[in-house]
């Protein structure tokens, strides 16, 4: 009797969270799916009707589509490469005994707390500006021609800005993982004559494997949806050079008022994110069993 009461109470306590998230998940997603098969333009509401796969076809044959997919992958891949490799190196460095470790740590993680519009505008105007930016000043000091970052390497510039924001995250997590490595194991390996390189390869890296996986997966979820950084720096241009899938959908929806087309794009984005999510859930789920 008591147990049944407890169980009922437990269910009642969970209900609000579960119901809210259920509604939050199902209603908008179902609507997106429904709209994606509709002719629906906010500027032309009369011609509304069933469209079959036309929206998908339209979205798919848009030359911007493949470029946006490529750009999305370049942003995700580029940022991951920089942050994971940089994060490992930085974590190894910060794991050494150093003077002022606490302050160094604070300096390194700070960019993570900077909101995306601030990060993007500061980099665009004060660091990468071809006339007045810090990088231009340095280039002139060295007698070089300043680089016009957003005109010459627009996508790379976005990657740099986003990587700056996420490097602290990778570093912090890898450092935390590194610090849980058993000192005795390290000493044992050292006594057995393993050199620095081998110790890293056969002891540290396997120990970090799980943290690296988590970093990659969580970052991928966020990096697939990079938006504000593009909006305030290049607005997707020049042309479609920095338009990723998220930005293309936004453009279709709120600049072209094409509800059907944007929804078809949204469905594609959801499918893409779900493939990644599947792997993430497995990694996190395994931890739960432990």
């Amino acid at each position: 009797m008591a147990t049944r009461q407890t169980r009922t109470l437990a269910r009642a306590m969970m209900a609000p969270a579960v119901v809210l998230l259920l509604v939050w998940m199902i209603v908008p997603l179902a609507m997106t799916l429904w709209f994606s098969f509709q002719n629906y333009n906010l500027l032309n509401p009369i011609t509304r009707g069933f469209a079959g796969f036309l929206n998908y076809e339209f979205f798919y044959t848009d030359p911007a589509f493949f470029q946006s997919i490529a750009n999305t992958l370049i942003i995700v891949g580029g940022v991951l490469a920089i942050t994971v490799i940089g994060g490992i190196l930085l974590a190894l460095l910060l794991d050494q005994p150093i003077f002022g470790q606490g302050i160094v740590r604070i300096l390194v993680i700070s960019p993570f707390f900077v909101m995306p519009p601030v990060a993007a505008l500061v980099w665009k105007n004060m660091i990468m500006h071809p006339g007045y930016g810090v990088l231009a000043d340095i280039a002139r000091f060295l007698g070089l021609q300043p680089v016009d970052w957003f005109a010459q390497h627009p996508l790379f510039s976005i990657v740099i800005i986003v990587a700056w924001q996420w490097l602290p995250f990778a570093t912090l997590i890898l450092l935390t993982a590194l610090q849980s490595l058993d000192e005795e194991q390290k000493e044992a390996a050292e006594m057995d004559g393993a050199n620095v390189f081998n110790r890293f390869l056969y002891l540290t890296l396997p120990h970090l494997a799980r943290a690296i996986t988590v970093v990659i997966l969580i970052q991928t979820i966020f990096l697939l949806g990079v938006y504000a950084e593009i909006l305030v720096t290049t607005n997707g241009g020049p042309g479609y050079a920095t338009t990723n899938l998220a930005f293309l959908i936004y453009r279709t929806a709120l600049l072209s008022y094409d509800v059907g087309g944007a929804s078809a794009g949204g469905v594609i984005a959801v499918v893409l994110a779900n493939i990644v999510a599947l792997f993430l859930m497995r990694a996190v789920g395994r931890n739960l069993d432990r």
Binding site: L29, T32, I249, L280, M281, L288
Partner: peptide, 23 residues
């Protein structure tokens, strides 16, 4: 239930931009 809750976090914002905006 926990895993499912986490999965709702994976939904890309742009995937539901249109219906949410209209609502």
């Amino acid at each position: 239930v926990l895993m499912w809750m986490l999965s709702t976090k994976m939904m890309p914002a742009v995937g539901v931009l249109v219906p949410l905006y209209l609502m």
